[in-house]
Design a protein around this nucleic acid. Structure first.
Lengths: 153, 153
DNA sequence: TATGAAAGTTTTAAATA
DNA sequence: TATTTAAAACTTTCATA
């Protein structure tokens, strides 16, 4: 499950994060190596799960997703059964792009991407009807200043 | 700048989000079309900016990024100059994966990915020394329940 | 939209340091 | 053990029907 990542691996990952569409030849040139070693390392890191999905990032606004909310959730329920049902609800809703369980006073944070405020309300009503939640605060994004999935390697 | 996206375009985008590594032939088969129209539509959507970066998603933990914080920021400064400097600070720091300007009581939210709590503190000290910030609350993620970049097409 | 051919890329295997 | 070379299989790209 675990792999040791050396300097060359790291350089390859930087390239793949930046542009997964470039050819092996280009990657090899950019990292100062050649095709086969780069290919073998990529395969190994894929198998080890270091490299997960290869994807295209899309423009949310161009596709009609004009609202993004961060949702802070406090709950009074902390038993295993409640938690399992809550997590299931989140996982099955595609508008929930991120969900984290937190340390401290606020229990969960969600990032929710929807068409507009009305669509958020539909999501919110559905969520609270499914599981009991003590307190919810929704923070509406006015402007996406920065958004990247790149890890700072 | 704007494009009309039809049903076939949408299906192609779903495929590209799920797996940008598959061949044109596979995409064409999966969406019930053939190579040439699929290829032309992808090219158009790339040119229009609907399809942005092609990237590989990496496993943060495997690469030593063990801490993720959501940072809620309140400021007392609202003039253009302060804001410009603040945005620059955020954009140039690679550990800031997301930054949004919010409506309401909290002014900004950040998602910050670092090796550990100590690395977060280094980031935090650097940030507050660069720009004046009224109030900061850091929420530490204990568990990433869900994390996707896919839009719910 | 379909076909097909040229150019380019990935993948495997064998040979080499 | 990792890298280079080389060649087969596959993919993309684009002109033409």
């Amino acid at each position: 499950m675990t792999v040791r990542i050396d300097d060359l691996d790291r350089k390859i990952l930087v390239q793949l994060q930046q542009d997964a569409g470039q050819s092996l030849d280009d990657i090899a040139r950019n990292v100062g190596s050649s095709k086969t070693p780069v290919w073998n390392r990529i395969r190994k890191m894929r198998e080890a799960g270091v490299i997960r999905q290869q994807t295209c990032l899309l423009d949310p606004e161009a596709l009609g997703f004009e609202a993004c909310f961060f949702v802070l959730i406090r709950t009074s329920e902390h038993d295993a059964d409640w938690q399992a049902r809550f997590l299931e609800s989140l996982k099955k809703r595609p508008e929930v792009q991120e969900a984290h369980r937190l340390a401290g006073d606020i229990d969960y944070i969600l990032k929710v991407r929807v068409a507009n405020a009305r669509a958020y309300d539909v999501f919110y009503q559905a969520l609270i009807s499914e599981v009991k939640i003590h307190n919810v605060t929704a923070l509406l994004s006015m402007e996406e200043i920065k958004s990247t999935v790149m890890l700072p390697l």
